[in-house]
Each structure stands twice: as C-alpha cells, then as structure tokens.
Simulated assay, not measured.
Amino acid sequence: MSLRLSTVILPHRRWHEGGGTAWTRAEQLGFHTAYTYDHLSWRTFRDGPWFGAIPTLTAAAAATERLRLGTLVTSPNFRHPVPLAKDLISLDDFSGGRITLGIGAGGNGFDATALGQEPWTPKERADRFAEFVPLLDRLLTEDSVSYEGDFYSAHEARNIPGCVQRPRLPFAVAATGPRGMRLAARHGQAWVTTGDPRLYETGTPEQSVEALRGQLERLGDACAALGRDPGGLDKVLLTGFTPDRGAPFASLDAFVDFAGRHQELGFTELVIHWPIPDSDFAMDEKVFDAIATETLAQLA
C-alpha cells in the first residue's frame, strides 16, 4: 500500500514576514498536501499572532501550483455550514481544485467559547457534527438547499457553480467514536486520527499502535455496515500526538521506522508539523528536509 507524506503549517506568522515561505517550500519539498489548523487561536499560541485558515489557504493557493491544500481540521465550534460552503467553493475555484476539507467535531479549546457560548459536552458536539457534515455535503453538491434541523438551517442557499472537484471537494473526517466513524464511512474520502489521546502521557508506542489498529478495525466495521469498501477511504495520521512524541523526528532513520510501522497498519498518509522553534514542534530543519524528501524512497 502506497504512502503519502504531508505537512501542517500553523498560521502564526505574518504572510510578508515569512508566513508565505513555508507553503512554497512545502511544494518544492514534494509534500502531497499542506494543511493548516482552522482555529481562532490554539493552545500556547493563544497570546501571539494567529491568522484565519480560509484567507491563509487562499494566499497559499496563489503562491503554489501543484500542492494540495486543506484544513486539519474545521469544526462546528465557530463555523456554520452555509457561509463555510460558499468559502470552500470559492477556495476550490481559486486553487484550481486543490482543496481538501479536514473536518472534525471540535473540542473544548478556545474556539469552544469564543462566540460567548458555554462549551458543549461531548454528546452535544457529536449531535452537531452529525447534522453539520451531511448539510455541508448537500451545500457543496446541490445548487439550492433548504433545510431545518435542530442546530442548523438553510433557506434556498445557492452555491452555483459548485466545486471544481466533482461532485465536491473531498472530506477528510476526523473521528474515533462510533458516530464519527459512521460519518467518515458515509461522507468521507479520507479518515483522520491523532491516535488515542488517553495514551499520550503514559502510554507506550506499542500501545499506540494497538489502539490505532483498533480504530482502523472500527472504521472497517462502519464501512461494512454501509456496504462500502474501506480500501476506498484514505487513512490519515496527524503525527505528534502519540506517545512517541518527538522521537520519530530525531533522525531520518527514526522517522522511516515510524512511517513503516504505520504504513503496515494501513495508513495511506502521514502528516508532520512544519518546524516551529521553541515550541512542541521544534525540529532540526535538516532532518525535516530529509524526512520530506527521502522517506518515501526509503520505504519503497
């Protein structure tokens, strides 16, 4: 099974002060996709610069030619499907059909209360996500959509001419629970995981591999229930959140070993963070460049 290598570039630098350089460099290094986080602010970056995902991807689309671009991930925390669909159709057009929408249920970070609401419980997030994804699917594939749900409404929402990619741009659905897995199986062209968060602090790499194996099996079950071949769904691991932490990025050999183990599990795409000095994503840039350019050849 072939493997792709992608990167996620945090939108924390002004475009004309180096923020745009990473995107063009990602294309030069041969990454399959360059994603960015769709947050209003994020973790330790909360009190520093942080720019919007859609404008950032629009600028990246203008600065690149072949590189796929996407969010990892967009969530209902501060998004509504109707204006989001219009932005995504526009972005897909600007990029010439190079956009992937990573989409998830969201969490209890800063986005969860930025609009003045109380943070939703896990069940409330799952309920909203279960309505958000199918409505967004319709908005991106139908010229006119009317809908009245428990959380979202659309009244003759027009989305002409639709996406460049047909029938719409691909969804990469982040999910680990049964309801999210069903959404990935029904609506996704890819499934995204960061591993089992319960293992991050005290788990082992071996336990992480077994947890990921279990997630992949549950995804297969969700596909089987819908009569879908799970082989037609890409499996994406966003790295940096498993118990390995920074160990796979210490050297090219270490990453090739990490990549090989996860390729054997069935993952088709690994996403690594663009290096940020003095952060959790600090990395020797020479090692990063070697990982980007040599990993796939080493695994061939």
Results as ranks from 00 to 15, higher is better:
Ala22Arg: 13
Glu27His: 08
His16Phe: 06
Leu88Arg: 03
Asp93Pro: 00
His32Gln: 11
His16Cys: 01
Ala26Asp: 11
Gly52Trp: 00
Asp93Asn: 04
Trp42Ser: 02
Asp87Leu: 09
Thr24Glu: 14
Trp50Val: 05
Ile99Gly: 10
Leu72Ser: 02
Trp23Thr: 00
Thr44Ser: 14
Gly19Pro: 01
Ala63Thr: 12
Leu67Asn: 03
Ala85Cys: 07
Phe45Leu: 11
Arg79Thr: 11
Ala22Glu: 15
Phe94Gly: 00
Leu67Lys: 06
Phe31Pro: 04
Gly20Ala: 05
Gly52Val: 03
Thr56Cys: 08
Thr74Val: 11
Arg43Phe: 12
Trp15Tyr: 08
His80Leu: 11
Trp42Lys: 05
His32Tyr: 15
His80Tyr: 14
Thr36Val: 08
Ala60Val: 07
Leu69Gly: 07
Tyr35Gly: 11
Gln28Thr: 13
Ile89Glu: 05
Glu17Phe: 03
His80Pro: 02
Gly18His: 12
Pro49Ile: 04
Lys86Trp: 05
Gly30Asn: 05
Asp38Lys: 09
Gly20Leu: 08
Val73Lys: 08
Ile54Val: 15
Thr64Gly: 06
Ser41Ile: 14
Ser95Gln: 10
Trp15Asn: 10
Trp23Leu: 03
His16Gln: 11
Tyr35Ser: 06
Trp50His: 10
Asp92Tyr: 06
Pro49Gln: 12
Phe78Ser: 10
Thr44Lys: 08
Leu57Pro: 02
Thr44Phe: 10
Gly97Pro: 07
Pro83Met: 06
Gly18Ile: 09
Leu29Gln: 12
His80Asp: 11
Asp93Ala: 15
Leu88Thr: 04
Ser95Pro: 08
Arg79His: 14
Gly19Glu: 03
Ala61Trp: 06
Thr58Pro: 03
Ile99Gln: 01
Ile89Arg: 04
Asp93Gly: 07
Ala59Glu: 06
Ser41His: 11
Thr44Asp: 15
Arg79Asn: 15
Trp50Ile: 08
Phe78Ala: 09
Val73Asn: 04
Asp93Lys: 03
Glu65Leu: 01
Ala34Phe: 12
Gly70Lys: 07
Pro81Cys: 06
Glu17Met: 07
